[in-house]
Design a protein around this nucleic acid. Structure first.
Lengths: 153, 153
DNA sequence: CGTGAAAGGGTTCACTC
DNA sequence: GAGTGAACCCTTTCACG
């Protein structure tokens, strides 16, 4: 499993900033013929280097004006406890990110809500209702400073 | 500025899960002719509902195996303090997300690192060196449970 | 707002070096 | 691995319903 070379990195960087660029334009940008470029892209996709292509839909335009960061602790760290919690949290469409963590809390979540009233509903109907939860701590984003989809190459 | 209708939502949802779908396939999926679909997409982009299209490049495949969540507090909340901090944090390529927050800490960051050694370097050379920082608290992701680019529609 | 057709351009092969 | 050319398909635009 060889590492991506400089041309692969150029392809990845370009697709990170514009995933809908045509293969012909991408090829010109990285200095390849269209067919060579298409073949490399195929390999990058099949190796799982590229997980997918996503439209970044504005939360605000869709009326999601609020981002909450939620720390959660469970009653234990048994495998069954974790997997029941995770299965439930995946069903909440407002949860954008969820990590199992080291440290004081077991999980950290990034949650989108339309407004404070909507967040109260999500907190009551979804987050508080998650199995095995013993502690929840919400804080709110006042301003987005950085939101990059990927590591700067 | 009218709200997106059901077909617009179908377009957005489809592009969220596959931004490189051809306009012809997209049109078929939402039940439109290609030309009608293309026109709607144009409008959605120009209204800013779609902010951009991004390849989701695997951190792991690029050898970023570690995600840290970093809470940071500053010595004050003066506008100049905040803007100096933010200008500096934007220069660190490993910071994926940064929010100004309500609550105990001023900022929360999501940081990608290759491994623990790499994280120590980032912590020493970047995070600790950020201006006005008085408190830093790092914790680490043990497992990614959810990582959605957008709210489930 | 949706449809269909036409022109221009993109993608994807097999083939070659 | 990379480039070339040709067949096929897609995008874009326009007049029209």
């Amino acid at each position: 499993m060889s590492e991506p070379d400089a041309i692969d990195l150029a392809i990845l960087k370009t697709l990170q900033s514009d995933a809908r660029i045509t293969n012909a334009d991408l090829a010109a940008k990285v200095g390849l013929s269209p067919s060579a470029c298409s073949r490399r892209l195929d390999i990058l996709e099949k190796r799982g280097v590229i997980r997918g292509y996503h439209a970044h839909v504005s939360h605000k335009a869709l009326d999601y004006k609020m981002i909450a960061i939620v720390h959660i602790s469970l009653s234990g760290q048994f495998a069954k406890t974790l997997s029941e919690f995770e299965a439930a949290v995946k069903r909440c469409p407002n949860v954008l990110v969820c990590y199992l963590m080291s440290g004081e809390y077991d999980y950290i979540l990034r949650v989108a809500a339309r407004d404070l009233e909507d967040y109260e509903r999500i907190h009551r109907d979804w987050l508080s209702a998650l199995p095995h939860v013993v502690k929840i701590n919400s804080s709110f984003a006042l301003r987005e400073v950085i939101d990059r989809p990927n590591v700067g190459l």
